[in-house]
Every structure is written in structure tokens, then in C-alpha cells.
């Protein structure tokens, strides 16, 4: 089964770095990029299928639709079984981590920057999730 990597972040430099690392560590050859939650939701509403796995790297503070609202909107049509969300935020604010901690889609919470090690641990988490599915 294939998987689709989706980056949702409004910082182009961060997106550039994430893309680079994702490609370098062969998590995906062509990750999709959206600048806010709304763009990502609009894509998924059309494209979402149970036959695909979705790996979403989600920033929290974004214009138009932020990460929390994106997670709310996701509930309407997606299943946690094939939709794995990783929060990637620059905020070291503990309350952010607490407020998404119990969300059914969220597998882990990363504080920026994303480096090679982050991507490697992502891969381990994804494999584990897909085996347990």
C-alpha cells in the first residue's frame, strides 16, 4: 500500500527543509505542500480514499485555518487508521502539546526544527502504526 506525505505549513523555508529531508530519507519522492489547513482540507475532501495512507506534517499556528481547526475538519471524513498526523510546531508552549495530546489522529508532537533524526523516528512510528492497523 502506498502512502502520501502532506506538509501543512506557512513558512516556506521550513517547507523547503522538510521537503529536502523527506526526499533525502526516502519517506516520499514528492511530498504535497499546503500553506494552511484549509488548502489541505480542500485537497483531502476531494482526494481522500481508504485505499491510501496519509502522513500529515501539521503546523499549528497558521493563517486562514490553523492546525486545531484542521484536525476538527478531518474528523468529518477521515479515519485515524490511514491518516497519521504529526504535529510540527515552533512553539515550545506546553499547553499546545497538551491540547492536541488526546487527538485520535495525532501520533506524535515535534518541536521545530525538523532534522534528519526527526524524519528517521517518523519512519519508525509510521511503520509501527501500519503494522498494528
Amino acid at each position: 500500500m502506498s502512502h502520501q506525505v502532506i506538509i501543512v505549513d506557512d513558512d516556506p523555508v521550513v517547507v523547503l527543509m522538510m521537503k529536502h529531508l523527506i526526499i533525502r530519507h526516502e519517506l516520499s519522492a514528492a511530498p504535497l505542500v499546503f500553506r494552511n489547513g484549509l488548502e489541505a482540507i480542500q485537497f483531502l475532501e476531494k482526494d481522500y480514499t481508504r485505499e491510501e495512507n496519509y502522513i500529515i506534517l501539521l503546523d499549528l499556528n497558521m493563517p486562514v485555518m490553523d492546525g486545531w481547526k484542521f484536525l476538527e475538519a478531518l474528523k468529518a471524513f477521515a479515519s485515524p487508521e490511514n491518516t497519521m498526523v504529526f504535529i510540527v510546531t515552533s512553539s515550545s508552549d506546553k499547553t499546545d502539546k497538551e491540547s492536541v495530546g488526546t487527538n485520535e489522529f495525532v501520533l506524535d508532537f515535534f518541536i521545530k526544527p525538523i532534522v534528519s533524526d526527526t524524519v528517521l523516528s517518523l519512519k519508525v512510528l509510521i511503520d509501527k502504526h501500519l503494522v498494528n492497523k
Binding site: 512553539s91 526544527p113 525538523i114
Partner: peptide
């Protein structure tokens, strides 16, 4: 906690990328 962290995190990430190599001169 929010605004300062963003460019600082970016800096750390960028330096890490440059350090670990595999970049073209242009990159």
C-alpha cells in the same frame, strides 16, 4: 515562546542541513 522560536528553529534546521551535506552548490 511563539515568534522568536520560529526563526531560531529555522536557523537550527538550516545549519543542520548544511552540516550534514549532500547539497548542491546552488542549494
Amino acid at each position: 515562546s511563539h515568534i522568536v522560536r520560529a526563526p531560531v528553529a529555522r536557523l537550527i534546521g538550516l545549519v543542520d542541513l548544511i552540516k550534514t551535506g549532500g547539497l548542491s552548490d546552488e542549494e
